[in-house]
Every structure is written in structure tokens, then in C-alpha cells.
């Protein structure tokens, strides 16, 4: 009994009041921030939520110190291929996954600490023309990659030292898969969005990698990216971002949508709609629970409540520089916001 809100709801005079700056960390050796994330890290019997920052040639692990300060624990050097993404691995400890490449991902690596050798190490997980990668629960990684002839969609299991022998190939759709999302509460279901705007659903139990259904999102929202999927009352609710959607009179400038799909009939219905603040364009987003965040081309960061369909906070670029990155921490209502100069600010939302 909820209907898509076609009229964008925007708050006038949005400010940072919903975001409280907690601390910031600056890597003096880092020039350009590429990505930021959080990871659970255990050392000497103490398990802490640490921050991981990436620039093109290195990835650093930061641990919390007293008084909201952060100390660098270690920096992995990655000099051969540029780092382009940190791939969060849910429910794992002492393991950082990164994607490296030029225009697209060519390599996936694990960064870890080996207690056997008492040293920080890195190991290669996969190479290829990788189009999308996502960390799954139970220390697994799903990726889509392309050769000239075909697309491979594969789930690999990770050991503490790298790629384990257990793997599973999923039936690929004809079109390239650009993003994945686990179906919350259903370990055996996985969803992907494709280059021609379809939602595909796989069964990923140990026996099969069947492609169960392909459903179309609609032509108005090209190259939609799935962020979050949950199943409720026989429907699949998919949170999508629309990095390339054009502004329209009826919908404004769409940033995120929640769409309900009936997997049995492939019919769908819009549930909630979030628009960009007026005068802003372009976005690169992240979603956690009902909170969505995106970096806009103006150098601002916008935050939305997806249940309300409203923009709830706006971080404008300030004299210290434009915003380049925005990610939610894996736990707590904490926003990680990165500037081009490598500074990462932690905000409580």
C-alpha cells in the first residue's frame, strides 16, 4: 500500500546538521584518495573497527586511538597496477579485498596479516577483464568477467591466505553484469543488474548456479546499479541508483529508487523515489540499510533517507576541497567522506 512518489520531495536549506564530524584522518604520504572503507581487525586479542584508505599505489589500515584520533597500522604498497576500489567483505576479520586496474578491473587482491610469518602480506585472487565484484557473506566473492567470446560469473571462496579451491560458476545472462547485490535473509539468492537494464536473479546454492529470472527495469533509467535487495511477502525489493538518468519534469533528477519486483511474473512497481537536490547533477552512491549517500559532480555529498524518499543532509564542498568519496561504515551510522587530497572525515549520521 505504498505508491511511487513521483513528485520529488526536496528540503529547502539543507545543512550539515544531520551529520556530526567525529574525526578526520590525513595520510601525509597519500596524494589522491581512491576509496575508503571499514574492516574489523583483531590484534593481540582486541577486535576493533578499523578504517582502510586507498590511493592509487597503496592501501593503509588505520586503528582508532584515544580522543577520536586514528593511527596508521600498516601500508601495503601496490606499485604495478593502480588500485581502483576497496571491496568490502561482510562478516570477515583481518581481511581487506581490493580491485586494481586501469579503466576497468584487471586484478582482485587480498591484503592480510599472516600470523604464521608474523607479517603483512598480499595475495592474488583473480585476474581478467572484470566488470563487477562484490564481497558476499561467509567469506565469498562474486565477480563477472568477459572474454571476447563469453561472460563468466563466478563465486570464489576465500581462505585466510587467499583464494580457496571451492568455487562456483553461475549461468551468465547474455548481457554484461555491472553490479551485484545479495538478497538479504536468503543465502541462496543473488541479484545482478546488467548493461541493458535488466535485473537477473540466480540460485547460488552449492549444487546449482541457475539463472532463475530476468526482469526489466525500464528504459528511463539506463545502466541502473543495484545496491540492496530484500525479499518480503513474495516480492523482491531492489534499491537502485541511477548514475546516468536524465532529468524529467515528472521525476526531477532521480538518484535512488526502490522497486518491488514479482519474481514469478517479472512485473514491477516503483515504491520510493529519491531525487538530487536542485541544481546538482551526477552521482556515485552507496547504500546501507535505509540510508543512501552519493557524491555529486559539484563536489558535494548528499544523504537520503530511502524510507522517506527525502534528502536529509548535504555536505557542500568547502575551502579545504571538494568531496571525492562517500561510503557508509560497515557498522553504526557512520559516514566516511573523502576529499581529493586524501583526507578522510568521519561523520556520525
Amino acid at each position: 500500500d505504498v505508491a511511487e512518489q513521483l513528485t520529488p520531495v526536496l528540503l529547502d536549506g539543507l545543512t550539515e546538521e544531520n551529520l556530526q564530524l567525529v574525526s578526520n584522518l590525513k595520510d601525509s604520504s597519500s596524494s589522491c584518495a581512491v576509496d575508503v572503507s571499514t574492516v574489523w581487525w583483531e590484534a593481540a586479542g582486541c577486535r576493533e573497527l578499523c578504517v582502510v584508505t586507498a590511493c592509487e599505489s597503496s592501501v593503509s589500515l588505520w586503528k582508532p586511538l584515544a580522543s577520536d584520533h586514528w593511527g596508521k597500522v600498516y601500508t601495503w604498497q601496490l606499485t604495478e597496477i593502480p588500485v581502483i576500489q576497496i571491496v568490502p567483505l561482510p562478516d570477515t576479520c583481518n581481511l581487506v579485498c581490493i580491485a586494481l586496474g586501469d579503466l576497468e578491473i584487471g586484478e582482485i587482491r587480498l591484503l592480510l596479516y599472516s600470523s604464521e610469518n608474523n607479517s603483512f602480506q598480499q595475495s592474488l585472487v583473480k585476474t581478467g577483464n572484470i566488470k563487477a565484484v562484490l564481497g558476499l557473506k561467509d567469506r565469498r566473492l562474486v565477480s563477472s568477467s568477459r572474454t571476447v567470446q563469453e561472460q563468466q560469473v563466478e563465486i570464489v571462496s576465500l581462505s585466510v591466505t587467499g583464494r580457496s579451491r571451492d568455487g562456483q560458476t553461475l549461468m551468465p545472462p547474455e548481457e554484461t553484469v555491472l553490479a551485484f547485490a545479495e538478497v538479504e535473509g536468503m543465502r541462496d539468492a543473488l541479484v545482478g543488474t546488467t548493461a541493458v537494464n535488466s535485473i537477473v536473479v540466480w540460485s547460488v546454492n552449492l549444487k546449482t548456479g541457475q539463472l532463475l529470472k530476468k526482469m526489466h527495469v525500464g528504459y528511463s533509467y539506463p545502466a541502473s546499479i543495484c545496491h540492496r535487495v530484500y525479499s518480503d511477502s513474495g516480492l523482491l525489493f531492489v534499491v537502485l541508483s541511477h548514475p546516468h538518468a536524465k532529468e524529467s519534469e515528472s521525476c526531477g533528477n532521480p538518484a535512488f529508487r526502490v522497486i518491488a519486483f514479482n519474481p514469478k511474473t517479472a512485473r514491477s512497481m516503483g515504491v520510493m523515489f529519491s531525487s538530487l537536490p536542485p541544481g546538482h547533477t551526477g552521482r556515485q552512491g552507496d547504500v546501507k540499510d535505509a540510508s543512501a549517500v552519493a557524491v555529486l559532480t559539484s563536489g558535494a555529498i548528499a544523504v537520503w533517507d530511502l524510507l522517506l524518499g527525502q534528502c536529509t543532509a548535504l555536505l557542500l564542498p568547502d575551502p579545504a576541497g571538494s568531496w571525492a568519496l562517500a561510503r557508509w561504515a560497515i557498522t553504526g551510522a557512520c559516514l566516511l567522506a573523502g576529499r581529493w587530497d586524501g583526507t578522510v572525515c568521519l561523520y556520525r549520521y
Binding site: D1, V2, M186, D188, A189, V201, S203, T208, Q210, L211, L212, K213, S231, S233, G234, L235, A260, F261, N262, P263, K264, T265, R267, S268, M269, V271
Partner: peptide, 23 residues
């Protein structure tokens, strides 16, 4: 969301689609 908009809804959609899909 109602069945008139989305067609017949099944709580067991995953099991049913798994059984229908080619191996």
C-alpha cells in the same frame, strides 16, 4: 503493492523458480 499490479504473488517464488529453471 497488489496482485492486480504485479500478478500472482507466491511466498515460495525461489523454490518454484528453482524447480522450473533448467539445470
Amino acid at each position: 503493492c497488489s496482485e492486480s499490479d504485479l500478478g500472482p504473488i507466491s511466498l515460495n517464488w525461489f523454490e518454484e523458480l528453482s524447480a522450473e529453471a533448467p539445470p
